[in-house]
Nucleic acid binder design. Sequence first.
RNA 1: GGGCGGUUAGCUCAGUUGGUAGAGCAAUGCCCUUACAAGGCAUGGGUCACAAGUUCGAGUCUUGUACCGCCCACCA
Length: 951
Amino acid sequence: MDKTYQPHAIENQWYQTWEEKGYFKPNGEGDPYCIMIPPPNVTGSLHMGHGFNNAVMDALIRYRRMKGDDTLWQVGTDHAGIATQMVVERQLAAQGVSRHDLGREAFLNKVWEWKEQSGGTITRQIRRLGSSVDWSRERFTMDEGLSRAVQEAFVRLHDDGLIYRGKRLVNWDPKLHTAISDLEVENHDEKGHLWHLRYPLADGATTADGKNYLVVATTRPETMLGDSAVAVHPEDERYRSLIGKFVVLPLVNRLIPIVADDYVDREFGTGCVKITPAHDFNDYEVGKRHNLPLINVLDKNAAILPGAQIFNVDGSVNAQVDSSLPTQFAGLDRYEARKQIIAAFEDVGLLEKIDDHALKVPRGDRSGVVVEPWLTDQWYVSTKPLAEPAIAAVEDGRIEFVPKQYENMYFSWMRDIQDWCISRQLWWGHRIPAWYDANGQVYVGRNEAEVRAKYNLAADLPLQQDEDVLDTWFSSGLWTFSTLGWPEQTDFLEKFHPTDVLVTGFDIIFFWVARMIMLTMHLVKDDQGQAQIPFKTVYVHGLVRDSQGQKMSKSKGNVLDPLDIIDGIDLETLVQKRTTGLMRPQDASKIEKQTRKEFPDGIAAYGTDALRFTFCSLASTGRDIKFDMGRVEGNRNFCNKIWNATRYVLMQCEDQDCGQDGSQDYELSVVDRWIISKLQLAEKTVCTALDTYRLDLAAQAIYEFVWDEYCSWYLELSKPLLWDENASAAQKKGTRRTLIRVLETILRLSHPLMPFITEEIWQKIKPLAGATGDTIMLSRYPQADESRVDKQALNDVAWLQAIILGVRNIRGEMKIADAQKIPVLIKNGSADDQQRLNANQQFLRKLAALESITWLSPEATAPMSATALVGQMEILVPMAGLIDKEAEIARLTKESARLEQDIAKTEGKLANAAFVDKAPAEVVEKERNRVVENKIALEKLREQIEKMNAL
RNA sequence: GGGCGGUUAGCUCAGUUGGUAGAGCAAUGCCCUUACAAGGCAUGGGUCACAAGUUCGAGUCUUGUACCGCCCACCA
């Protein structure tokens, strides 16, 4: 074996073997256990969040597989409508071509081409991460089967009255020219202005304070072209008399009414609000209440009336909306129009003032531009009826969130859910299965033929399919069952649905989790016709952030590719990777500087297992992860530790009798029984942690057991046993057997978190450990056996350790090199101590590097020594030539100060009558013993200090 | 404006039902000891954000405050 662990030498080979042999597939035996991968964007590449997500899922699935469950980890990718279309459009734009130049069909061919070309990146990455997904069942949201499921779901929901087409205000993205759902709008605080505009009163009316105009305050002055009213609060004394009167809309010179509506907040601004029903969600509602005009200019059949939409698809001012509109603004971009409209107000003396104002600006999450409320026909899912059972499923515990607090987030959103706009004016996606006749009558069905039959349409009636596609999340929402073959009643659907756990970040609870629950419960029924849930548990993990706690994003230039941590990357390549393809190329120099500072030597190659173990150990619930490269390095070292422990074990066991034949002629020493006991405890901790989704605790328990107990203590303790010429063959065999079998168990215990190194080593040692089977992947997961916990051995070794630590402390403080063997005297020991000493001398000699151990009778006089205490027993290291008097006094003084402090504290507690009265007897007893023991120890230390001083 | 989470060693984080605070990294000192210098041994370092309360006893439970972060919401 190499002297250090070389992950690259083994990872690819093992993954290939596993995959070829079909180990990832369900084997048809045991209880079904299923996890659905959150499908990544087929044309994207995996980031750290995916790496984390995959590490968690693979740990869970490998754990359950080894426990004997019939596991299915369903893999696949998402077509990611907007994101993918944007990428391809950007590529075309670089060649000066727009999608409209190509036309729909040619454009879609381009996207498919890109999908084919790019799709391998993701799947290659998933393989490199070691994820044990069933590749034979890989799906894509736009493949034939899933498209059929989408169609089926749409038609059924429509026929059930849960999908409808409606004309209403939607969030319009003027850059992407499509509607988006509420969730795709991000509201950010931005600095803006509040413009105070004067609207002259008509018919000579005046305000209470004698002005002949009203002042409206607005953050969006350019929308005034579409104003159809001014609203005041019904009980606002300042304006009460004006309700029902009119103002003249400046620049447009149209009369608009003053209406009363308690939507208006009297305290804010001037208490007068301009109402633009076609361009603001609130105003839309006000407009409906007051029958204010509101007409969509895109609707060719509609009359052009005041209040119509004043913007075009791209947010420029609509020239044709209304012949009364001043023509000088036509065609201007909305922000240019704003400037000119303000200037025009100023020209006519109607601009009262401009205040600075902080406001929430709604931006499209993909395009980043300010979205425009816009009136169009769109398809909607009626969510209220779907939400009800979906809420109940979480309330009654059929679906459980881990950690629990996310249920509140889910409830609060679901209880106030708005209808979901599912149509998108894109080309890449599932085309909506709806057809129109020349009169705009809509027919929904699985295909044109079905539509004609279903609605009794003449064969020659011209029908036109809806141009729009569905929101990507509509198909994602079917993921748990569409991938299993729905709408067919397949065996897989029968067996694996509902799935067991969904592992995901909190950022997509609304986008994905909530919608999956709603859609699944409506569309999928069990044998009794009851609604099926998509999954029993939702394990919600945090976001992976950079070392500064910043969200990772391409534009910040702080993204890390998990593969670069696995394979390593040099600085120049990393800089190049981070600075190419930026949305804002001007950020490049800043990103370069920052990257060079954070990774002056690039990133070392740490291997998959180190990365995965790090993800797991950072996976505590309910908080984000600040990714720390130091942890990866530490865990790479941990892999190396296991590797080298194996080298040692093999040196001891190879070509030796380790009981691999199952023979019983071996003896277990106290340390053998000790490590076996500790192993049971570790197994229990790890299993409990995995069962409760505490991968961090599982990782910690494994780390501590392997490094601190197995390596630091047991391997060292095994040396005096195996190297003892007087030890019997049975004893040596017992130790070799324990060495190799505990190691083999460690590998199985760690496999879900570190699949590669454990398989590699397991294959090397399995014959010696008497293990069988072709792969560790399918071997049995260790299970704690309480009957193998040997209390006596635990106590004996704790005693040993205390002595060794005492001597080492003297050694360390006195700077005695380990190479120098020292004599030790033992005084004041009990009969038990003496017996233990006799039985365990060899261990003490080796681990404390002792030259001799001498048992002193209580009467014997000892030479001047440095002292360590183990209970009543004194461990003495004679000072002659080794130890400096002052240093020893200092050491003893430090120790006694510590004891004094402890005694004072404990005595204070015991002096409190209330404590003695009310605390449980055993707690009081413990404190009493503590004082007694510490006092004896302190007394000894003081005597020792006195003796030193007398020298 | 509501709701949630966080605040523990220089850094990143654990801390189970209240019983004297732990790990990794970093630091310091000594060691190339025959598994491992990606290592060994030892050491230092924390009024658990602040305040009050409950309790014999609070990092842990209650209330409030501060700061940080997130989610939701119609204040033009």
